[in-house]
Write a protein that binds this DNA or RNA. Sequence first.
DNA 1: TTGTACGCGTTATCAA
DNA 2: TTGATAACGCGTACAA
Lengths: 345, 345
Amino acid sequence: MKLGQATIKDIAKELNVSSSTVSRALKDYPGISDETKRKVKELAEKLNYRPNAIALSLRKSRSYTIGVIIPEVVHFFFSTVISGIEEVAYSRGYNVILSQTNEKIGREKSSIETMLSNQIDGFMVSYSKETENFDHFTRLLDQGFPIIFFDRSTDIPNAINIMVDDYKGAFDAVSHLIEQGYQKIVHLAGPKNLKISKERERGYRDALKNYGMEIQEEYIVECPVGSDEESKEITTNLLTTLPEKPDAFFANNDMAAVGAMAAAKSLGFKIPEQIGIVGFSNWQFCSMVDPSLSSVSQPGFRMGARATDMLLDIIEKKLDPQKITEPITLDTQLLIRNSSLRIKS
Amino acid sequence: MKLGQATIKDIAKELNVSSSTVSRALKDYPGISDETKRKVKELAEKLNYRPNAIALSLRKSRSYTIGVIIPEVVHFFFSTVISGIEEVAYSRGYNVILSQTNEKIGREKSSIETMLSNQIDGFMVSYSKETENFDHFTRLLDQGFPIIFFDRSTDIPNAINIMVDDYKGAFDAVSHLIEQGYQKIVHLAGPKNLKISKERERGYRDALKNYGMEIQEEYIVECPVGSDEESKEITTNLLTTLPEKPDAFFANNDMAAVGAMAAAKSLGFKIPEQIGIVGFSNWQFCSMVDPSLSSVSQPGFRMGARATDMLLDIIEKKLDPQKITEPITLDTQLLIRNSSLRIKS
DNA sequence: TTGTACGCGTTATCAA
DNA sequence: TTGATAACGCGTACAA
């Protein structure tokens, strides 16, 4: 803050009282004469007094600030989560301090250090793709420091995880494709080390099993990057080389789904008549591509809001983290659009 | 921070030295014996000592934190700007504290107050649509408090504005359409009260003039919401009722452009042969729609990065804000894709 | 080479 | 009803 910001001392000096009196008057403590209160408040108003939150933090060892560690800000799902976080934090009087890791563990660790230095009251974390060792988190959790992991969950004992029900989302999507009569369904899978990828793959497998269909391992293809270009290349390859041509794609994310769509179209396939496609995440563009892309929508805002409410409850001791033993899962919703709807009922 | 976080005092007590010695040893001050330094650093490491940034802030009246006030986080352009801000802030050792206003002035003001309480070193602001009175900003600027306005600029004297060159972006886009031989170019305009909308419309008008073409007022249609549905409806209307059928659309944003594309396609027009379309912003989906959408790309990341560099330079007194009298404009780039390219050269 | 004392802004505690 | 003092964690001018 610039010079010239009035402090309690300034008010005290000007009114010839002690700073404790001013402090008490401002907070309507009992045992201060109405007269003094009035004078203090009047002058505070006049001087545009604003309490110094930093001094307060130092004194209380509480900053009313939570730290958000996120892989990328420019990402539809994550920005939606941030929005939910910010909304709840604001309404409960907390600040949000934000850092993106760009999927780098080094940056993740250093951001955590900085935030701890800044005495934040708790963390909301979606860890980076590079993170395989979780010691920097367990250490904090063991100290009793509040952390909530969102979207990307961990196996750390006692950690609180909140995520989307990826398994069920995938299960629903693939079941839908089967019900639409698709037989050879490829899964464009995500990075193997992320739990969400594994869960989605599990949903894919179980849906097939559930309908008595065989699982062919060559139909499960990893798309490590997750971009549309990558997927277009992979999909073109599959459609031209596999002995039994696939007739549907269930993608781990919407970008990959769009890549598959582009590949199929440029090879002359009709969508959804010959090839069906379903993505995951329900990004904004799903309704804008042609044909519109069916997708599994994830409740990002709700996830951010819910997680923040829990974190603040823990910080404020309204909730005992020990009591939360199960991961919290939020329901997804399958949005059926034209890319997978060939049986009009 | 939880109990148990080691302080300088803890180290001092354990080593039987004074806390100032510890402080100096940790910072490699001259005049401390190597022996002491070694011991102090060793113990600091062992105790996992972490400087208390809050105490430092209080002492230096500097928090190494900047506040970002933004209308919405879930918005491709804004999230890109945030990313640029965060990137530079991180690399220069600053924290970013974030608040979204949801376009409400009340929230804008209260967020500013909170951030000031937290002794932030400067502001990055894109004000809300409701903001018409700027007193809450001028007061701060008059005090010498560093603020940079991005994307949405102000007329406040001495304020620093950074924005995209909307005029030129629009001018280039429309010139391109004309060069492609389109004759009856409609402008799907944005909300009239935003400066960016006005600038884009001005670019549209000047491009037509520049090519000696007549400006027909009924070809300039406001799309107040800016959604694809809205634009689809408006465009369908135009294509079916106007006596002289339009053969191109220059939209104020990409969503509106996609709406126009959908309308044209469903009316059986070929794109780009019969109808050309150019959007604004270059959202991610531009390359994914079919045909791919030409668009004017706005350098969001660069804007965030550049603005933050300036803000930090001002904070660190490397730059005198008085010296910046002109608004800073960043060049846009016209990305020509299939929706407007009918003359292959 | 090291220690003492003070102040950043605030509030809790004890005393008057 | 009010005031003086100490403390939160750190850095530094001054003294030793």
